[in-house]
Design a protein around this nucleic acid. Structure first.
Lengths: 122, 122
DNA sequence: TATTTATCTGCAAAATATCGCATTCTTTAA
DNA sequence: TTAAAGAATGCGATATTTTGCAGATAAATA
């Protein structure tokens, strides 16, 4: 198999990992700070096991790394720049079918681009 | 549903469309030039109907647009910058499980970044 | 009009992914 | 040692995607 096909395949794997709303939100949460599983679950309002599964997948693809502190598992992005890359994808969501207004996109971008890592509102 | 969830959802849709090796290669082919279905199929060594299906999906998500010339359908990227965005993802494939060497990544990047749209080798 | 060329559509089979729970594992605290 | 907290795992039930073809369309040409 030619190299460029291999590379395309691997690239597709990464896109696949990113291709889930929960995981996108998790990555954006982990943008600057590290979180344990429960905190992530609460922030995103998702069941714990689900968050755990998503993290396992991301771990398998080295998108996140784990660190233990007492009995909690703290996760952080292996390459924080990946969050920026994802936000860059917002350039391509505008003008799409779903009922998303430009202002919604602007506010998402602001939220996911702001320097302060803590306590997102809206 | 909060806005940021909607946006994450839509973003995930785009990642999903990009999350296929064939489609990644197609997007890279369309980077600068437009192609008809057969040319794409030949260049990528894929069955015609498959290319057509991929194109239908990308069309549905407005990643590509169609133009007719006689009996052929010419496709081009709606937002050519999307190709660059995909190439930027290469930053995250290095050091992953699969047997991909850094040089393979470099050469893919070169190929998908080069100014000349025509006749890729290797 | 009949053919040929280029592309699209439809469908079923196979492969993957997601979801919701119950259970298990580990580590700390009582 | 026991109990409890925090996470991970297992697994069936359901989607969703991908694939491979066969057949249907549409446009140009003979």
């Amino acid at each position: 198999m030619p190299n460029r096909v291999l590379v395309a395949k691997e690239l597709a794997e990464i896109f696949k990992v990113a291709a889930h709303p929960d995981r996108i939100r998790m990555i954006e949460e982990l943008r600057q700070a590290e979180f344990d599983v429960n905190s992530l679950a609460e922030r995103l309002d998702l069941p714990g096991p689900r968050v755990s599964q998503h993290l396992a997948l991301m771990r398998a693809h080295r998108l996140v790394e784990e660190r233990r502190d007492g009995r909690r598992h703290l996760y952080h992005l292996t390459q924080p720049e990946i969050a920026q890359w994802i936000v860059a994808g917002l350039d391509f969501v505008e003008g799409r079918l779903a009922g998303i207004s430009p202002s919604a996109i602007r506010s998402a971008r602001a939220l996911w681009t702001a320097p302060a890592p803590d306590d997102p509102q809206t």
